[in-house]
């Protein structure tokens, strides 16, 4: 009888483990599991400076509902955030503030550049406006548009999640900037000295 009871717990192919055990765990790789957890639990920091903020409110509101994709609670301190949403025109006067916010975020962290002004300066080719925030901080995903459609923002979010799934802890991943990880970008310079020298990205 004892032998028979044990046979009930064998799988059909003869390996140990029964139906109840099979339902209680799955196997994965550690790196995959970490990346999966990260990409669906963004703690966003909305750095909203201009009219794109209206579109940001729309896309995070109930109609487009980025909660569905893990873009959830806005945290109004960078120390609790891992996704910096830069939404709107950044002026040179604002630039040191944006950089300090980015420096205050703990790794792992990502940056979404939201809208044409943030990507390139947009139409403002003048004395006041930063010509693309990637001249002062590294950017992981660029969402074009003036302002971007909510669908574009969601598409950018999904593409960012695909990238995060490929990321490996302490190992850089190929991205638009080459193989430089944000971790290395930060470690190459003095921390939290604003204003200070900045290594720009060269595409």
């Amino acid at each position: 009888m004892a032998m028979e009871e044990r046979e009930v717990l064998l799988r059909p192919d003869g390996r140990p483990g029964g139906a109840d055990l099979r339902d209680s765990f799955f196997t994965s790789r550690y790196q995959d599991a970490v990346a999966w957890a990260r990409k669906f639990a963004f703690f966003q920091y909305p750095f909203v400076t201009a009219c794109c903020g209206m579109e940001y409110m729309s896309v995070t509101g109930p109609r487009y509902d980025t909660d569905r994709f893990g873009l959830t609670l806005p945290r109004f301190t960078p120390r609790q955030s891992d996704l910096l949403l830069v939404v709107g025109t950044i002026t040179h006067r604002q630039a040191p503030i944006l950089r300090r916010v980015w420096e205050q975020m703990a790794d792992p962290k990502w940056v979404m550049s939201f809208g044409n002004c943030t990507n390139t300066g947009g139409p403002y080719d003048n004395y006041a406006v930063v010509q693309g925030i990637d001249t002062i901080i590294p950017v992981d995903i660029y969402v074009p548009g003036c302002p971007p459609r909510p669908e574009a923002v969601i598409d950018g979010l999904l593409k960012l999640q695909e990238r995060i799934q490929r990321e490996r802890v302490n190992r850089p991943v190929e991205n638009i900037h080459g193989s430089v990880s944000t971790t290395r970008f930060a470690s190459r310079e003095e921390v939290a000295l604003v204003p200070g020298p900045v290594e720009p990205h060269r595409d």
Binding site: H92, P96, N126, Q131, T135, I136, P195, V198, P200
Partner: peptide, 19 residues
Amino acid sequence: DYPKQKRQPLIGPGSQGEA
């Protein structure tokens, strides 16, 4: 007579301290 393209960034390319 202020040059349209002239930038005076506080940080980033073109700022003081940037080689």
